[in-house]
Simulated scan of single mutants.
Amino acid sequence: MKNTLLALKVFILILFLISSCTKQNEDSDNSDPVNPNPQPTSIISGRWKVVNDSLANIGDYYNGGFPMPGNYIGNSSDFMDFKSNGEVNFKIYWYTGTCKYNLLSDSSISILQFQPTMHKAKIINVTSTSLTLYGTDTSSNGGVLIKIINLKR
């Protein structure tokens, strides 16, 4: 029974991750209405290794659904690569893709396809060797989802 439940949780988590970031058709509108003119800066541009990617689900964000909270420790093949053209290539866990990002200010970033938590994320630490992204969202039932991604060069 525990194995079946675990398999079901993993399957639903996979579905959530797949739906959170999809490949975009070049003709599709992938603009951010909050900031239609993205301004990526050199401080976050480039390839970063994923140290960890943590998720907290406080107050039952999805009313008993996923995602499950946890802390993923990055391995040597996990990365986020912020390009100067406003795209980020990534591999986190087994999931690989390319998404648009907009630097909203020196302390906030929007990664639309990493919704809901990274739509208006805070950059809470940035140096030449470390970057921390902190995103949060509150559901209609008052539950809070918190995501923190720690990166290093």
Rank of each mutant, 00 (worst) to 15 (best):
S20V: 02
N141G: 03
C21F: 14
Y93I: 12
S54H: 03
H119M: 15
S130P: 01
S31N: 12
G74P: 11
L5Y: 15
N35F: 08
S54E: 13
I18V: 15
I146D: 01
T41G: 14
Q113S: 10
P36H: 12
V34G: 10
I148A: 02
S84T: 13
W48K: 10
G46T: 14
P36S: 10
N125T: 10
E87N: 11
F79W: 02
K83H: 11
S76G: 06
G70N: 07
N89F: 07
G59D: 00
T129I: 11
L103C: 02
L17Q: 11
P33C: 09
P69K: 04
I73K: 15
L151W: 07
M118R: 10
P40L: 12
N141L: 11
K23E: 13
S130V: 04
Y101T: 07
I43G: 04
G65Y: 02
L151G: 08
V51W: 03
N35G: 02
N75E: 07
K100P: 03
S84I: 09
K2C: 09
N71S: 12
N89G: 10
K23F: 06
K122P: 00
V50I: 15
V126T: 09
S140D: 14
S139P: 02
S31W: 03
V88E: 04
I92M: 08
Y93N: 05
L5Q: 15
D81Y: 02
K152Q: 14
L145K: 04
L133S: 09
C21R: 07
K83F: 04
I58E: 09
N30W: 05
K147R: 15
T132W: 08
I14G: 12
P67A: 08
S19G: 10
I146V: 15
T117P: 01
L131V: 12
S77Y: 07
G143P: 00
T96M: 10
G65W: 01
P69R: 02
D29F: 08
V50N: 10
M118A: 10
Q115F: 12
N102T: 13
V10P: 00
G135F: 13
G143E: 05
F114A: 14
L55K: 09
S45T: 15
K83E: 11
L145P: 00
T117C: 15
L15H: 06
K23W: 04
K83P: 00
T129R: 07
M80D: 03
D27N: 15
G143T: 08
Y101S: 04
G70D: 08
F79L: 00
G74F: 05
I73A: 14
T117E: 14
Y62M: 08
D81K: 06
D29T: 04
K23L: 08
R47Y: 10
R153S: 11
